[in-house]
Design a protein around this nucleic acid. Sequence first.
DNA 1: CTAAAACCTCGAGTGCACTCTAAGTCAAGC
DNA 2: GCTTGACTTAGAGTGCACTCGAGGTTTTAG
Lengths: 126, 126
Amino acid sequence: MTPPDEQLSISEVAERTGLSAHTLRYYERAGLMLAPIHRAASTHRAYSARDVTWITFLTRLRSTALPIAQVKEYADLARRGEDTTPERLELLQRHRIAVVAQLAEMQASLAAIDHKISLYAERTTA
Amino acid sequence: MTPPDEQLSISEVAERTGLSAHTLRYYERAGLMLAPIHRAASTHRAYSARDVTWITFLTRLRSTALPIAQVKEYADLARRGEDTTPERLELLQRHRIAVVAQLAEMQASLAAIDHKISLYAERTTA
DNA sequence: CTAAAACCTCGAGTGCACTCTAAGTCAAGC
DNA sequence: GCTTGACTTAGAGTGCACTCGAGGTTTTAG
């Protein structure tokens, strides 16, 4: 059984997502959260599993170079509800194309680096 | 036959490399060039084919997120001559590992995005 | 010869994404 | 009950990589 509504502190979320607590607060201020982060009987943030899931996906978007402004756009759409699904789909599809292009360029660059390495390796063993 | 020593203006190099003229001057100031860029009977820069080849490789390093400071390190080594080959090889090998990791992360992120897209696509057609 | 376009240097400005600081509040262990 | 460490906010600071602007010179086309 999964714990029904486990609450996580900011440092626990930081650890799980690889982001710093500073960055988590910054993202929240920037309007990137899907829902307001719950405060646990105090002023301290208490993240839900859903929050962590979203933050994890968010970092997937960020790590593929989607600017924060566009992550916010996506979050804004998601907050507006089900009927923005087509827009979100389109945003993701556009981004997908960019990611595929990035992958191709990175692979080409890796090939160039590998080529150079092989030239150097040859020279040092010779 | 290849033209023996074609001279290119900064805007021609900009066009060929995809960098702006501003960026080319900036890179030069930052010490990233292998050799001083020749000036053609005037104050204007005249790039050689070798320069362009290096700039192209340099952009491969940059596009795989090698910081400018490390590109400079590499260029500094290259300028010091043949006997820095081992250091350059090591730098490239270290970077290669980082690039492979980036590729893996990007592929994982692409998979996550694709998964989300498939959920959305299902919902919009349903 | 002249006008427009391309180039030059130096230094300042920009945008992005954090990252940190200060001054305080809250929670957990002893 | 007190101390220690984690948390809070608001706002300032940082680092990186460009990017631009001003003011001037050089090249090129007519």
